[in-house]
């Protein structure tokens, strides 16, 4: 069984933290939880990343951005895309969740709450603009595959909700 724990060389963390998710620029790929391992072997950096969604077009860009950030720090890098263990929204760090909310995207709820929000129309998602929970789902699919569209019934602002993936 593959362990779900990340193995990341401490020296590489500051470099990886500079690389952001191209679709959510306030979020580093570290906060997103997509970096699964990073190590230096004989002067070459090996990084494993895992996609949030299978079709996520950001993955190629993230791979290129890692290589360029590493080369600025003087490293040659090989990036590999791995599928197992599959990414879950639980891997978004607390700092990452905060950054999402500030950016105007409601952070994912736990799996149970997510289901009752998307299927039964329960009002549990907090509007990232005004904090009200008086919100409604407009569509299960939003601006990207990982988000659903919501609208706040108090301030009327539309916003994205990052769907729970487990």
């Amino acid at each position: 069984m593959v362990t779900e724990k990340q193995h990341i060389d401490e020296a590489l963390i500051p470099i990886l933290e500079q690389v952001s998710d191209p679709e959510i620029p306030v979020l580093s790929i570290m906060d997103m939880g997509v970096v699964r391992s990073a190590s230096i072997k004989q002067g070459i950096v090996y990084v494993e990343i895992t996609p949030t969604y299978s079709g996520c077009p950001a993955m190629d860009v993230i791979g290129d951005d890692i290589i360029s950030a590493m080369s600025q720090a003087g490293y040659k890098t090989e990036v590999e895309l791995i599928l197992h263990p599959a990414w879950t929204t639980d891997w978004i760090t607390p700092k990452g969740r905060e950054a999402l909310e500030k950016y105007g995207i409601a952070a994912p709820l736990d799996a149970e709450a997510d289901k009752s929000v998307l299927l039964e129309g329960k009002q549990l998602v907090k509007c990232p603009q005004c904090g009200s929970k008086n919100t409604k789902m407009v569509s299960q699919f939003g601006s990207t595959a990982c988000k659903a569209q919501f609208q706040c019934e108090d301030c009327q602002e539309p916003f994205d909700y990052f769907k729970c993936l487990k």
Binding site: P51, Y53, S54, G55, L83, S139, F141, S143, Q149
Partner: peptide, 20 residues
Amino acid sequence: LETDIACTNLSLDLFGQVRS
């Protein structure tokens, strides 16, 4: 608009899966 986006998101998921 919503169903349009939903259908193309499904499409994107499926393309991602087949790519692997």
